[in-house]
Design a protein around this nucleic acid. Sequence first.
RNA 1: GUGGCUAUGGUGUAAUGGUAACACUAGAGGUUGUGGUCCUCUCGUCUCGGGUUCGAUUCCCGAUAGUCACCCCA
Length: 440
Amino acid sequence: MPRVKKQLEVKKKRRKKTSPIQIVKGMKDILPPEQLLWDYVLENSRKLCQDFGFGRIETPILERTELFQRGVGDNTDIVEKEMFSFETQGKDKLSMRPEGTAGLVRAYIENGMSRWSQPVKLYYEGPMFRYEKPQAGRYRQFHQFGFEIFGDEDAAIDSQVIYLAWKIFQKLGIKDINIQINSIGCVECRSAYKKLLQDYYEMKINKLCMDCKRRLDSNPLRLLDCKEEKCMQVATSAPQIIDHLCVPCHDHFKNVLEFLDEIEITYVLNSRLVRGLDYYSKTVFEVWENNSEGGQSSLGGGGRYDSLVEMLGGEETPAVGFSFGVERVVESLFSKGIQLNYSIKKEVFLVQLGDKARKKILRLFDKLVDSNITVGESLGRGSIKSQLRMANKFNSKFALIIGQKEALDNTVIVRDMESGMQEVVVMDSIVKEMKKRLKG
RNA sequence: GUGGCUAUGGUGUAAUGGUAACACUAGAGGUUGUGGUCCUCUCGUCUCGGGUUCGAUUCCCGAUAGUCACCCCA
């Protein structure tokens, strides 16, 4: 009977609890176990970028909205409806960056990097924001790692960027990938091609699905990518952009592919690959991974953007870049069962009994850490039993036990966790003793 | 933004128109200062808000979130 009453009281108390505040839609917490994978991904990527001569740059998350309107393109989906934009108290119109390149270009211009020795090679990482409908592997705040090369228009640079992208994934252990590549030409040949494509589809408009009929005007390039069977049939004989590139664009693309052949990177010519940001020209590519269901998912993408620097008010500067989604890469690694052992390992574990002992532990902990020994403790715990359980969980080789008696005698019990053998050691020599034992 | 599906302890899963079962994890303990096995106990506003009902976690509606497709991309 009293127990029932108690439960009721507990329930009443619970009711009064204020409701918890939830995470914002499309946002995600990255907890310690997952951080290991993040570190793995980012550290390897940074290392490779540095090996390739890239310097790290960090630009602000907030930029003027205008930067993205001009840079990414006013009519792109990203700018039109996917930006987190707001006005400050000072009436500045700002946006949280939806991608990294525009900010880098701004920094390139603003810091006078055109007078640095060319090419300028930069890499970056950080959160990006897009107001989209969240889905698996697709968040409103997501992270990109990317790198850009400014000031060199040679096709070799394109292939170097692709090579580095490829290499990063190889290094990370994501091997079942392929490079989807295409050239979308320069402004001139692209608009000519668009017209050609529209003409082609106009003739077959009756064979298209509803969506494609609608898209014909707004985004003709997208029709090539439709998954309706009847549209796919029409697409197979549609004109391909690589057949309609101007001579310089054509040669450039040919060179890129030759370089890729040379460094033995397998790529897939994908005439339907069109990227959603306006600033791209010539080479565009994506890195796709073959997933377990037999489909493919995009891990990252990039391309050349020779006119962007000028569009944002700088001198005419060719550039290429690539970026990948850290979440997607992490998830890919996770689904492969790549497990970085998240066992927290502590060589030595300190067990304390009583207040006096607890005080001694604090200093001992510090000394041991200073001599590069990993130490665990559980100051908040009372019983020796639970503390030794912790020691076991931490895979400790030794437990150092200090109780009331030891605190007074200035001694420590050294317990070998494997054999269970115990020995009393004088406090002053414990650090030395531990060092010695851990070596052997 | 449009449409479909889903929503149960920290996690992963059950069952049910009469307040919830199991596994794992976590915490406390299994007599006085000793771990890994074992045992016991503890941890659920059944997402939220309405409605139907004597009664709803279970049915209906709405909200929210997740998820899938479109769209777009990382």
